[in-house]
Design a protein around this nucleic acid. Structure first.
Lengths: 240, 240
DNA sequence: GAGTGGTCTAGACCACTCA
DNA sequence: GAGTGGTCTAGACCACTCT
């Protein structure tokens, strides 16, 4: 046991110790830190324990690991944010406002070209569009516009979406194997403004989600929110 | 060995097998799945292996685990998106556009009340504001407005930020222990529009980041982007 | 008290990648 | 070929939570 190096019994302790070294700049970005075997000896624990600590630090983006090379400290420049996207109903009820769902439009048929491409629809392929509004008391909180690929999810054709939104229904499909989210801001055109109860040109926050099952596109969903009443937030903390 | 239950040797196989069962609805949302010991027997592997598979499925949000109770399948309703936030310079260069940095303002002093609160500044506490623009060729791609708590990071006072932005510098601090991101859309007022080269009222995409070191606020940063030229995207895929 | 997951250990073998 | 991380195993004990 080295001075200043007491026995560390758990992977959390080991993780915290290594993280502290990195934050202290004992181990600087670009450097290779000691190997698992050496650390295990130093800390008086099993290599498995050190391994788990390092694996989690790698997942969190603090280090990078390569076989035969070792574990390398990364400089913290890239950032990642994990935003939780709660079901809209819960999101609204949480604020205390009354939730109301309103279906605006539901129709199956041949979608516009842009949508057909997003859904990777075959030539005769049909899609189901379901557009709806979610109210928070007297205010419109979200307009959802869902396009569902009926080739991939024929079951959707049987859904009326009179009570609950298509987005919600889609989220209930457990089988999804891939998800892509995009968020951005937008100025509304006249129609969008009307649907959202805003003046044309008003800023909206847009969240789009595309989902797949085994390489087949399931749906493309666009969620639009008045800029003033929607935000996504994310928080990450590491042990003190 | 049960029929249809071949020996699974690795935690990845076990994970895929369990995921398949969940997607198949063999195990439905709300149900408790068999315990680790039983699964290990069934798959012919060590309990540790099953444990790792289940742990990762729990991290990914497919199941929830409770001691003495068991592992419960979750219905996939909540969503999570992990957005990568690349350093702005790289983001611009990636598009092929010429990157240019322009410092607009740098001044230390007593900040406005709202900022003082965000920074948890003491009564006499000073902050450093650094506002800058990032150009992509002829277009303004981002206006960054950084407020740095000089009590927490006195070293910032020595930085001129003439060449690189304060945001970038802040990201280089490895010691940060907590990060909070918020993103939303906004209509610009006259000043913001001017700084962004847009007409007043234009939509912008705003990303805000607040960072801490051991409970002390380090900085609050607001990054504003013309709506048309910025989007965040995230993609998650699970094994087929 | 009992049953579940959470973790540690010691040892082993494998996989990748560098020289 | 050699050195690193990646993973599996069998067994053990602990921590939590339900009854």
């Amino acid at each position: 046991m080295k001075p200043g190096g007491p026995t560390l019994g758990t992977y959390r302790e080991v993780k915290a110790e290594i993280l502290a070294r990195i934050r202290n700049r004992d181990w600087k970005p670009g450097e290779i830190i000691p190997g698992e075997v050496q650390l295990a000896r130093q800390y008086g624990c099993a290599r498995t324990t050190v391994n788990r600590a390092l694996r989690e630090l790698a997942e969190a983006g603090f280090v990078e690991r390569k076989r035969r090379v070792g574990t390398c400290v990364l400089g913290g420049n890239a950032q990642e944010a994990r935003f939780a996207i709660p079901p809209i109903r819960r999101d609204i009820e949480r604020t205390g406002a009354a939730y109301r769902y309103e279906l605006l439009r539901r129709s199956a048929g041949r979608p516009p070209r842009a949508i057909a491409i997003l859904l990777k629809l075959g030539d005769g392929g049909l899609a189901l569009q379901a557009k709806a509004r979610h109210w928070a008391g007297p205010a419109i909180h979200q307009v959802e516009d869902c396009w569902i690929n009926l080739e991939t999810v024929p079951a959707a054709a049987a859904q009326a979406f009179g009570q609950g939104g298509a987005n919600e229904w889609l989220l209930g499909l457990t089988a999804v194997t891939r998800v892509r989210h995009v968020c951005h801001a937008m100025s509304t055109n006249a129609q969008e403004a009307g649907e959202l109860g805003l003046s044309p040109g008003a800023a909206v926050f847009v969240l789009e989600r595309q989902t797949w099952i085994d390489g087949q596109v399931v749906a493309w969903v666009r969620l639009m929110h008045p800029a003033a009443s929607y935000r996504l937030s994310a928080e990450t903390a590491w042990e003190a």
